[in-house]
Each structure stands twice: as C-alpha cells, then as structure tokens.
Nucleic acid binder design. Structure first.
Lengths: 195, 195
DNA sequence: GTACGGATCTTGGCAGTATCTACATCGGTG
DNA sequence: CACCGATGTAGATACTGCCAAGATCCGTAC
C-alpha cells in the first residue's frame, strides 16, 4: 500500500521495475554487450532465474528497453517539430533533436536500431513504435516523402558515427560534434543557407 | 604443389580459407547470430579449437569478413561512379549500387555496419577500409561534402530497411524494393527530376 | 635417409550465458 | 487460518569463447 517497497525479503515486491532500472544502468554504463539477464539479476540482487518471472526471455527485456527509447525519441522529435518557425527550420531542429538523442544515449540507440531485436512481424508493438517515429517526422514537416528523406539522412549520419564507420573530427568519439554536423548536413542537403 | 589440397588428413592443408568460406556460408544462410567459431569449425569439419590456429579470436574472424565486404562494396561504388554521365546521375547510380549491395548481402551489411566489430582505433585496417568507402563516393562525385551527404542519406535508408525499422511496401523484406526507393529518395533529396 | 623442431590439429576443461524444472516462500483470499 | 497461486531460488542442460596439454605431420638440417 505504500510506495516504499520492502527489500531484502524473499519476495522483492517490485522486481520488474528494479530489473528495468538495472538493465538501463548496465546499458548506459557498460554497453549493450554487458546487458545479460544474469548481470541484470545480479545488479537487482536476485537469483539468476528470477527475471524469468517477469520477462519470458532475454529478448523481451531488450524489447522493453527499446520501446522506452522509441517513446523518448518520439517525444523529443515532437517537441522539436512543433515550433512556430518555417518548415525549413524544423528540418534542422528535428535533425538536431535526433542527433542529440543518439549522442546522449548511444548504447540505447544501438539497441533500438541494431540487429538484437526481433522481427517487426513477431513483435508488432516494436514496429508500431518505430513507425510512430517516421509519422512524427512526416507530420511535423507536413510531407511524408520529405519526412522519410530527412529521417534517412539524419539516421544515416547518426549510425555512421555511432558505429564508428566515419570519424568526425578528433573529439572523444565523434558523438560530441554530431548535432552540429547534422545541421550542416541537413542545410547542405536541402539547400538552406548555413547559419 | 598442386591446387587440389588434400582433405581428411590430420592437417587440413588450407584451413584458413576453408574457415573463411564456411563463415561466409553461415553468415548468408543462417545470419550473424549463428556465426560462432564452433559452428564455423563444424562446417569446416575440424575440431572446435582448430580455428584458433588461424584467428586469434572470434572478433578477428568477423573483422576478416567485414574487410572483404568493404572491399567488395568499394569496388561496386567505383564501378557505379566512373560512368561518363553527369555528376547528378552518379548520385543515383552510386546510391543504387550501395542499396543493391545491402539487398544482396544483408547479413554481411549487418556485420560491417553493426556493433559487433571492434573500435576503429583498436583495428586500424577496419577504419581505413571504411574510410575508403567515403573517399570513393566523394571522389566519384567530385565533392567531399556532397559525398558525405549522399552517403549518409543512402546509408540511413539502407539501415532503416535492413534493421526492419521501416517497412517499404509489402514485399518479402523491404530489401527487394530498396534500390528503386533509393533512387526516388536521392532524386528527391537533390532536386533531380524523377525518371 | 633420418631425426628433429615447429606448425597444425585434437581432446579436455573452465567460465559464462540462456533457459528449463523442481522446490521454497510468501501474501492475499476463501 | 489454511491454502493456493505468484514470486523467488537452486540446480541442471546445452551452448559459447577461450586456454592448456598432447598428438600428428611436414619441411629442413645434418
């Protein structure tokens, strides 16, 4: 009945959320490769099989985290795309928001856009969450085709830097300069004047 | 002294190449997740530890395959970008070549552009191979900044479809229609008339 | 020709992982 | 207040990457 759930008893009381939080921490601090079910269980202080009472398998936990990521990304795109400016400016605003998300949560972005997740057919909720990203970009720009073009360009630059395929400058990881480079890229692509 | 190496003896004779071929087959037929060292060894008909005589670890085998992929992709980009046409047409030619590569070797593309490979700092050869992709696109188009923009747009569309984030039509996997969609995208992005 | 040394391959083992089954414990309900 | 389903634990299986020790073979020096 109270918010402060007991801990250290046989039954955890709020293990599902504890597991999600532990998983988020591991993902951010140690990366996607360290995100094993057993590591999550250890971090939550439960036995190695306890997570199976709340997630049918490893994949389901990854889906849960990815879904949160898509929700968060969608909100930031909406916030960036509802300004009163010209459509042309929203292109770079949305692109910047996308890049800032990837730069702030690189491991989560890897999970969301990598090959670790199940097929969109076998997990329709994931497909819908991903679709909503495209829809928000399209409606913010008032043009579905333009939205896809912007999404592809922004996503491509983000992935090339995130996966270390290209090296933007000598900064720590290239992620630091990603948002500003994104703006340059988009203004170049869509023939807008550079600021 | 002859090309037909003996097989079925204690020493294989050409195990390194046999392992690479087995790895390529597994990657294409069963996907990146099935590409374990032990599976490669089984397919090559040797014991589970034999691959360690030719590759220091699992990662090194992945790097080898990825390097081949980058070489192949670079060649196709060069071939598509050396035509006598206008620069504007080369944009869609190169984009189409990139998309056809991804559509033809989806699992290899996942490996090349995914998170399974080591850092470009810890494996400089990989970084160089990736750089050469960007360089070829840039020189074919005669403009480094334009090359990066085209690369990002094409790569982004390819990855969104490859990783099942967006769904291009109702075809088998979306990969089928990728090349034609790429052309539409690029002509839209760069304000070229649609064919 | 032959003994040897190094390269190659096998066997066996360790640690870590996902997943399953059987069992222990607890909390809410009849 | 007893019981029953939900939750957590312990243990086992089948994988994986990787390492160590031994077996085999090939080319080379003598």
């Amino acid at each position: 009945m109270n918010e402060n759930v007991r801990i250290r008893s046989y039954h955890h009381g709020d293990l599902r959320n504890a597991l999600r939080q532990a998983a988020r921490n591991i993902l951010e601090e140690e990366g996607l490769g360290a995100l094993t079910l057993r590591a999550v269980a250890r971090k939550a202080g439960v036995s190695h099989a306890a997570p199976y009472r709340h997630f049918p398998n490893h994949e389901a936990l990854l889906v849960e985290l990815a879904m949160e990521g898509f929700t968060e990304l969608r909100e930031e795109i909406v916030a960036a795309g509802t300004g009163p400016g010209l459509v042309a400016d929203r292109v770079s605003d949305i692109g910047g928001a996308y890049m800032r998300f990837v730069a702030r949560r690189p491991a989560l972005a890897r999970l969301m856009f990598g090959a670790q997740l199940p097929n969109r057919d076998s997990f329709p909720q994931l497909g819908s969450a991903a679709d909503s990203i495209g829809n928000e970009i399209g409606t913010a720009l008032g043009d579905t085709a333009l939205g896809l073009a912007v999404w592809a360009a922004v996503h491509g630059l983000a992935m090339l830097v995130l996966e270390d395929v290209i090296d933007l400058g000598q900064r720590r990881s290239g992620l630091d300069v990603l948002p500003s480079r994104a703006e340059i890229l988009l203004r170049s692509l869509f023939s807008l004047p550079q600021k």
